[in-house]
Amino acid sequence: MNIFRLAGDMTHLFSVLVLLLKIHTIKSCAGISLKTQELYALVFTTRYLDIFTDFISLYNTVMKLIFLGSSFSIVWYIRRHKIVRRSYDKDQDTFRHYFLVIPCLVLAVFINHKFTFKEVMWTFSLYLEAVAILPQLVLLQRTRNIDNLTGQYVFLLGAYRALYILNWIYRHFTEPHYVHWITWIAGVVQTLLYADFFYYYFQSWKNNEKLQLPA
């Protein structure tokens, strides 16, 4: 474990807790894309298939349970909670899951480290995580206004993966044969997708004005 990875995990943890707290306290999911949340639940499910078979550390297992639990409870809140669901904007959140899931699945079948079920599922989760934020970014552009909690949520999500890139660079130089080029490429693509959001987020923060994404 290195400081970059710990900071990345904490940032990621904080992002999902911020979202869960927002939905739980104000009982609203305005501006949140259910599609993205469902994709994240799928990412964690396919990534943590080994949660009960391979024990890495208590930290690893606890964090996996938190990510699985929080992502599924966010989906439950938006889908089932009688108050929260009323604030879900399903007419705007229309991104088709399968536009992302199917290409990632096909790519994982053809480009992976090893052609086993677990490995393909793990690779699929990496590709899917890279693009899972798209429905949320599309929704933010459509609704044009971003309440600052949602802005912080997306910012923290992007920051976590950027910290992981620093972690991969650090591990590449400190650990022999630490090579996971698929992880690295997926991670860089994911961070680049956030880049334009970061740009507008910093612009609005610097000019101290409301965050507006260009149409």
Binding site: R5, D9, H12, D50, D54, I56, S57, N60, M63, K64, F67, H113, K114, W122, Y164, N167, H180, T183
Partner: peptide
């Protein structure tokens, strides 16, 4: 032999 690369990252 192909060492099982442990997925120790989240």
């Amino acid at each position: 032999e192909e060492q099982e690369d442990i997925k120790d990252e989240l």
